[in-house]
């Protein structure tokens, strides 16, 4: 599904060069639920942006669902992002002056779907997250947990193969966080590949596989083992 090999990404200013990713390699198989963890400044966000085709990279290769993303035009990258990837952000990133229905509609609009098909997909996505009755509310009229569920509905409405979730429960209380994680697991069970970026070991434990990023490199890479210390903890302890 996702195959990054020897990716490097450097941010340059007049004074300094920051190697955000260096020789970064990661493969995620179709249907996997992978948690990417790491301390602040480790390169998690850069990985997320590169994986989500929001930023390019300097060297290496990145294939997404078999498509070599290197050298693609902005139009082609946008189309690939729209069709293959769903985004879930920590702060939900709903558009405040559009109602819930129109928010979920956004990615479908850019896919130029017919109105009837869009309506059907929006309704079923909102059904899945349990907010169909709130379709014509504004985001500000919903709780944080509900807003994140709308964001999930928006991410899955286009039926992407791949969900990128960036600290999806970071702004939620524990009860709502659990509900969101339950929803993600449910979506994963339906066949969608999920990469979850988080610094929360509890959340990472619910993924099938944990990947730890330190200094822009994958430093530990092991499946989650029930009853054992999470990989992230083990690595941290070893460090």
């Amino acid at each position: 599904m996702l195959a990054m090999r020897h990716i490097s990404k450097v941010f340059r200013t007049d004074l300094i060069e920051t190697h955000a990713l260096r020789d970064f390699s990661l493969e995620v198989a179709e249907g996997e639920f992978v948690a990417v963890t790491g301390p602040s400044g480790s390169g998690k966000t850069t990985f997320l942006n590169v994986a989500g085709l929001l930023e390019g990279f300097d060297t290496g290769t990145y294939h997404l669902d078999g498509v070599d993303t290197n050298g693609l035009s902005d139009d082609a990258r946008s189309r690939l992002r729209n069709e293959k990837i769903g985004f879930i952000f920590q702060s939900f990133n709903l558009i405040p002056d559009l109602d819930i229905f129109d928010n979920v509609d956004v990615p479908l609009r850019y896919r130029r779907m017919k109105a009837a098909e869009r309506r059907e997909r929006i309704t079923s996505a909102l059904d899945l997250v349990g907010l169909a009755s709130r379709a014509h509310h504004l985001p500000s009229q919903l709780s944080g947990g509900q807003q994140q569920r709308v964001a999930i509905a928006r991410a899955i409405a286009g039926d992407p193969k791949f969900l990128l979730a960036d600290e999806p429960t970071g702004n939620l209380d524990s009860l709502m966080a659990r509900q969101v994680m339950d929803l993600l697991e449910q979506i994963n069970e339906m066949g969608t590949t999920i990469v979850l970026v988080t610094h929360d070991p509890e959340l990472a434990r619910r993924a099938q596989r944990n990947v730890q990023v330190i200094d822009g490199q994958v430093s530990d890479f092991r499946p989650y083992e029930p009853h054992a210390q999470p990989a992230t903890f083990a690595a941290a302890a070893a460090g």
């Binding site: 902005d74 946008s78 189309r79 985004f87 990133n93 558009i95 405040p96 990615p107 850019y110 896919r111």
Partner: peptide, 16 residues
């Protein structure tokens, strides 16, 4: 710009 960033993430091209 932040809302535009969201639209870009959701598949809007620069042209759009």
């Amino acid at each position: 710009a932040a809302i535009t960033g969201v639209r870009r993430a959701l598949g809007a091209s620069r042209r759009q």
